[in-house]
């Protein structure tokens, strides 16, 4: 049997707790499963898409945006879209954004730019690990 100070035991347990905290932080932070370079890591899917659109349309930096926001093996059924190339800003009017889980649907009117006519589309994005892994573009025509 050993006799120890109650305060020493208390301090020891707090020390072990803080050690556990540091160990959990270190183990999780340096876990290779996280891609810390992804621009949307830990962010909500709708926020990731909003940032992508800001860069690709409002700033006209689609080439840069697609390199950072689209995953390397991403599927995109509109590979020639203006939002994947750098150039003049592309005016667009977002009519609605519908997000559910990791899927974000953007209903928007893309204004005439870079020699292309106006286009009404529904872009459906799928997010994984902070990047866009799929984009399905559905051309449509708004009533107004």
């Amino acid at each position: 049997m050993v006799t120890v100070s109650r305060n020493s035991l208390k301090l020891l347990s707090i020390g072990i707790g803080l050690l556990f905290t540091a160990a959990v932080y270190y183990t999780m932070h340096y876990n290779p499963r996280w891609d810390w370079s992804a621009p949307g890591v830990g962010k909500l899917p709708r926020d990731i898409i909003a940032q992508f659109m800001d860069q690709a349309y409002d700033k006209g930096q689609g080439g840069t945006a697609q390199q950072s926001y689209f995953a390397k093996d991403a599927m995109d059924n509109a590979p020639a879209a203006d939002d994947r190339r750098d150039g003049a800003p592309v005016p667009h009017e977002i009519r609605d954004v519908i997000a559910q889980g990791m899927t974000v649907a953007v209903i928007h009117r893309i204004g005439p730019a870079r020699g292309n006519p106006q286009l009404d589309v529904i872009d459906v994005f799928r997010i994984k690990d902070g990047r866009i892994v799929r984009r399905d573009r559905y051309p449509t025509r708004f009533a107004q």
Binding site: M1, V2, V4, S5, R6, N7, L9
Partner: peptide, 11 residues
């Protein structure tokens, strides 16, 4: 407890 600030621990 073996006092207000000491504690005995048996293995």
């Amino acid at each position: 407890s073996v006092g207000s600030d000491r504690v005995a621990i048996a293995l």
